[in-house]
Amino acid sequence: MATLLEFREKLIGLFRRYETVATIAAKFLVTFAAVMIINGKIGYNETITGGLFSLIIGLIGAIAPAYLTIVVLSGVIVAQLYDLSLIAALVGLALMLLLMLIYLRFSPGNIWLLLLSPVLFALRIPYLLPLAGGLLFGPLTVVPVTFAVVYAYFIRFISDNERVLGGVEGEEQEALTQVQTILDGLLKNREMLVMIIAFAIVLLVVYVLRRRLLNDSWTIAIAAGAVLELVVLIAGDIAMNANLSIVGILLGTLVSAAIAFGLKILLWNLDYEAIEDVQFEDDDYYYYVKAVPKLSYTPSNPTMRRISVSKRKDPPPPDAEGFREENYGEEYFPEGEDYLEEDEY
């Protein structure tokens, strides 16, 4: 635990020292990674799929506010889809407009979860979304988490059905049929529906538990959230025949819980063994207060090294501060001679 605390203090100290650069770098990396992942799945336009364009989007994400980055990324998705099929691009545009009209206009702080979602889905740990959402934000985080799942499955569906949607010769579809195919791919996607329901339940449970006045509320919330996520996903898979990978869910949830626990150590480190309960009153209220101290890292005692002082040829005058005659041997005060004459004191 001491090692973890030491690491935490060093990390926080490093971040504080280079806060501006670290924030810009982190935003750039997240946006760049999201663009590369999207282009990897639906890279139909060569210009947009190019490295230079992804770099430019990453730079925009580094300096722009989060909601603007989401709008730009949605624009990239629509532009990519336009090269495949106009209808797919219009459906993507409709999804983007719904996101902006229903949620983005409130400029919420939890929009970063939406930005991180392509990276989490690519790493097979989307199960971190409800855990992190419940720990760090409020119950309305259900909205961006739901949009994140819908976007992820929309992109996956387009990628898996590009032959049909792209109008390969002999397999052309009418516009109406294309829209119905895409909407079928979303609305009848049981895997997506099970994920949305599971994430919504887990997020709300984690949020409620971590706000309770319990000792180790965050640890309880993470553990309960992870177990509930497993149970709901497996139950949903069985009930709705969603064809989810049980091993994938298990490993993904374990890794997500470990990352959530790391977040807890970084952000909410309390010493529940040193709780103080105090009571006091003022003119209006009687207060029952539970004070939980934060766990802090105390560096170990620095090693002391003695440095020996070499004998000086000329000792300091006797009236100098700290002068002690016994520190200076006979060679400084030869017999019969005074170091200083009386009138020189």
Binding site: L98, V179, Q180
Partner: peptide, 10 residues
Amino acid sequence: AIILGLYCIY
């Protein structure tokens, strides 16, 4: 209007 449009097409 967007949701209704998508519903009508579906």
